[in-house]
Measured scan of single mutants.
Amino acid sequence: HNGKLCKLKGIAPLQLGKCNITGWLLGNPECDSLLPARSWSYIVETPNSENGACYPGDLIDYEELREQLSSVSSLERFEIFPKESSWPNHTFNGVTVSCSHRGKSSFYRNLLWLTKKGDSYPKLTNSYVNNKGKEVLVLWGVHHPSSSDEQQSLYSNGNAYVSVASSNYNRRFTPEIAARPKVRDQHGRMNYYWTLLEPGDTIIFEATGNLIAPWYAFALSRGFESGIITSNASMHECNTKCQTPQGAINSNLPFQNIHPVTIGECPKYVRSTKLRMVTGLRNIPSIQYRGLFGAIAGFIEGGWTGMIDGWYGYHHQNEQGSGYAADQKSTQNAINGITNKVNSVIEKMNTQFTAVGKEFNNLEKRMENLNKKVDDGFLDIWTYNAELLVLLENERTLDFHDLNVKNLYEKVKSQLKNNAKEIGNGCFEFYHKCDNECMESVRNGTYDYPKYSEESKLNREKIDGVKLESMGVYQILAIYSTVASSLVLLVSLGAISFWMCSNGSLQCRICI
Rank of each mutant, 00 (worst) to 15 (best):
M367S: 02
Q328L: 11
Q415C: 15
E395N: 03
C438F: 09
I346V: 15
D399M: 09
I263V: 15
M277N: 08
V405L: 15
N419T: 03
C242V: 09
G504S: 10
M367A: 08
H401T: 15
N232A: 13
A355V: 14
V374G: 03
H259R: 01
A484C: 14
G321A: 02
E469T: 13
W382N: 06
S344L: 05
I512T: 09
S485E: 01
D399G: 08
T446S: 15
S502N: 02
N250V: 13
N444D: 06
Q475C: 01
L487A: 14
T273H: 04
L398W: 08
T482C: 04
R366T: 14
D402C: 02
N336W: 11
V473G: 10
N350G: 13
N362V: 13
I287R: 15
A297R: 03
A386S: 09
L379N: 07
K433C: 08
N459P: 00
N340E: 05
A326C: 09
P245Q: 10
K433N: 06
E410D: 15
W382T: 10
K433T: 12
K433L: 13
Y269N: 04
M500I: 14
Q256P: 05
L292R: 01
N444Q: 15
N503P: 00
R282L: 07
I423S: 14
I287Q: 14
N252E: 00
A478I: 12
G445F: 08
E301Y: 03
S414F: 00
P450A: 09
Y289K: 11
I300G: 03
G445K: 11
H236W: 02
Q507V: 15
K274R: 10
Q415W: 01
L392R: 05
D448C: 04
W311M: 11
K365A: 10
G303T: 03
Q332P: 04
T383P: 03
A355Y: 11
A478M: 08
T279W: 11
I463R: 09
I479Y: 06
M349F: 08
P267H: 00
F299P: 12
S492T: 12
F293R: 05
L490Y: 04
D464N: 08
L490G: 11
K329Y: 08
M235Q: 04
K417V: 03
D402M: 10
Y452D: 07
C438Q: 07
V412W: 06
D375Y: 09
R509C: 03
K411P: 07
N394I: 09
S251R: 03
L292C: 01
R509V: 09
E347N: 12
V483H: 12
